[in-house]
Design a protein around this nucleic acid. Structure first.
Lengths: 143, 143
DNA sequence: CCATCAATTGAAATTGGTTTTCAATTTAAC
DNA sequence: GTTAAATTGAAAACCAATTTCAATTGATGG
């Protein structure tokens, strides 16, 4: 995870921004935690150990993470913005259980490939995409 | 489009709701307009001909449309909720231009098929899905 | 046709997530 | 250290969406 911290520090200095105690704390907690954290979730976790940290700072810092490329913004339709730590792995998509809220990651290069084809057919250049499948997970189906 | 109006009327009476002047007006405008209208867009269009119609009524009525099945909710990440008139056609997905905001529909049964496979592999039962590809459309690429 | 009563409406207030403001504080550079 | 610019936290502002509420309208049964 050290490389992520490095990446963030470089981003800050490149942008003429400052490295602060709060930003370090938030980054540590962000990298430690589950992925698919909502801003609220992260804020609450942070508050336990660091009562002083403000709501606004968490929002601002998460936004920096996504600008810097160490986090990606997700939006699953429950008016909460979520940030997911970017991995070095392949891009992945999500299965989302409507019953229990579970979020399952998957990746399928064949789907990606077909997307490229579709885009090409429309003279469209892909920058990013998202695929979300909503339904019921195995656990919820059998109880 | 008469069948959509029929469908809505039946929905209303089934639910013990009433058919009103406003609901008729909003439905007419909704069916006439472009798809992918934001609530705001529709409200503004309506105001031109019907100054009396309230914001809340448009919100409430669009929600009814989606409950009734004649509209689908879309969310493209610009904090605006959009409603799309459901067609009898196949499910479709979207290419969204980050430069000009153009929304291009497409459908690809091969992608749908692969999604089914992925879900099956995870013991997951699909209820719905959405696939959005962001990038730059042909027009914006060549200017 | 009309009385009745529940549903609907529009305006305004409220909500909930997010962003901005601002004075005080902290950081990086000199 | 001094200094200038960035950052912080609390509170206020924001904005789409929802809810409240009194007045109005639509459907139903007499």
């Amino acid at each position: 995870m050290g490389e992520k911290k490095q990446q963030f520090r470089e981003f800050l200095s490149r942008q003429g921004l400052k490295s602060t105690r709060q930003r370090e704390i938030i980054l540590d907690e962000f990298l430690r935690g589950d992925s698919h954290l909502s801003t609220e979730d992260l804020y609450l976790k942070l508050r336990k150990k660091n009562p002083g940290i403000g709501y606004a700072t968490v929002y601002r810092t998460l936004k920096l993470f996504s600008e810097c490329g160490i986090a990606e913004v997700r939006n699953f339709g429950d008016g909460q913005t979520r940030y997911e730590s970017t991995t070095c792995e392949e891009h992945h998509d999500h299965l989302i259980c409507k019953a229990c809220g579970a979020i399952i990651e998957f990746e399928d290069p064949r789907i990606e490939e077909l997307q490229e084809q579709v885009a090409k057919d429309h003279g469209f250049a892909i920058v990013s995409h998202r695929l979300e499948i909503f339904g019921h997970c195995a656990k919820c189906l059998y109880k």
